[in-house]
C-alpha cells in the first residue's frame, strides 16, 4: 500500500533530516513509527502524502508515485487520511462543516450525503451532539476524535497519524487511542507516529524505530519488544518503558 524506498531529505548539504529510509506498509497492516524527538519520524510520515518534499528516493501510495510531478496530488491526498498532532480543525467552521467541507469540495458529494456521512462518523467517535459547536468549544480529546472522523469521511484507503496524542492532556489520551484501536481492528491500513507503546503492543503488526533520520530497526512487534537488535532502540525502550 505504501512503498518507501531510499528516501533522502536535506535542508542543506550539512543538515540531513532523512537518510536512505526504506520500508513499506502492506494493506491492512498497522505500523508504528517511534524514536527520540528530532529523529525524523514526523518528517517521514509527512513525505508519504507529500506535505514535505524530499530530494531523492521514491514513495508510492497504492501504486501512485508521490514524488512524480505528474501526479495529481490533491486527488492522491484525498484518499490518504491524516491526523495531526495539533488537530488542525478549521476554527471558523462548525464541527459538522469541518467534516463536510472536503467531502463536498473534493469528492463532490451533495450536502445531504456529506452531512449524513459526517453525522454517522461523529456518532462513531461518540460526538454527535457536538455537531453544531465550534472546535474551540470542545476539549482536546474531542477535537482529535473529530479530526479522525474528518479524515475518515473521505473514505481513505490508508490513515496516517502524526503523534495524535502528544498534545493531549493525559486523561484524554485513552479516548483517542480507543478510536484508533477500533479502527485497527476493522482492518484499516495505518501508519502511526507515536510514543504510546501500549498502543503499539496492542495493535501494531510492525514497529519502526528511527534515530537521526535513519530507520534503525524495522521489525515485527514481538521481535521489537522482545529483543531489539540495536543499542539505540534498546536505550530508547528502556527510557520510555521504565516509568
Amino acid at each position: 500500500m505504501i512503498e518507501i524506498s531510499h528516501v533522502n531529505k536535506w535542508y542543506s548539504p550539512t543538515f540531513q533530516v532523512l537518510t536512505d529510509c526504506t520500508t513499506s506498509v502492506t494493506k491492512g497492516e498497522v505500523v508504528v513509527v517511534c524514536g527520540p524527538s528530532g529523529s525524523g519520524k514526523s518528517t517521514l510520515i509527512k513525505c508519504v502524502n507529500a506535505l514535505e518534499p524530499f530530494q531523492s528516493g521514491d514513495i508510492s501510495v497504492d501504486g501512485t508515485k508521490v514524488n512524480d510531478p505528474k501526479t495529481n496530488l490533491p486527488k492522491l491526498r484525498s484518499r490518504v487520511g491524516m491526523v495531526f498532532q495539533h488537530f488542525e480543525l478549521f476554527p471558523h467552521l462548525k464541527i459538522i462543516d469541518n467534516l463536510c467541507l472536503a467531502q463536498q469540495k473534493v469528492l463532490g458529494r451533495s450536502s445531504d450525503k456529506a452531512v449524513a456521512k459526517g453525522m454517522q462518523l461523529l456518532d462513531r467517535v461518540g460526538l454527535q451532539e457536538q455537531a453544531q459547536k465550534f472546535p474551540a468549544q470542545l476539549s482536546g480529546g474531542q477535537q482529535q476524535r473529530v479530526a479522525i472522523a474528518r479524515a475518515l469521511a473521505m473514505d481513505p484507503i490508508v490513515m496516517l497519524f502524526d503523534e495524535p496524542t502528544s498534545a493531549l492532556d493525559p486523561e484524554m489520551v485513552s479516548e483517542v487511542l480507543d478510536v484508533m484501536v477500533d479502527l485497527a481492528h476493522e482492518g484499516m491500513t495505518m501508519m502511526v507516529v507515536t510514543h504510546e507503546m501500549g498502543f503499539a503492543r496492542k495493535v501494531a503488526n510492525r514497529v519502526i524505530f528511527m534515530d537521526r533520520g535513519e530507520i534503525v530497526e524495522d521489525a515485527p512487534k514481538e521481535d521489537f519488544f522482545g529483543k531489539p537488535r540495536s543499542d539505540r532502540a534498546q536505550k530508547f525502550l528502556s527510557k520510555i518503558l521504565s516509568h
Binding site: N49, L51, L73, P74, K75, R77, S78, R79, V80, G81, M82, F84, H86, E88, L89, F90, L101, A102, K105, V106, L107, R150, A151, M154
Partner: peptide, 20 residues
C-alpha cells in the same frame, strides 16, 4: 498547520485559500 490540514484532505491551493 491549517493549510497543511486542508491539503491533506485533498483541497487544491485555490480551495485551501478560499475556504480555509
Amino acid at each position: 498547520g491549517q493549510p497543511a490540514a486542508a491539503n491533506a484532505l485533498g483541497l487544491t491551493y485555490a480551495q485551501t485559500m478560499r475556504y480555509v
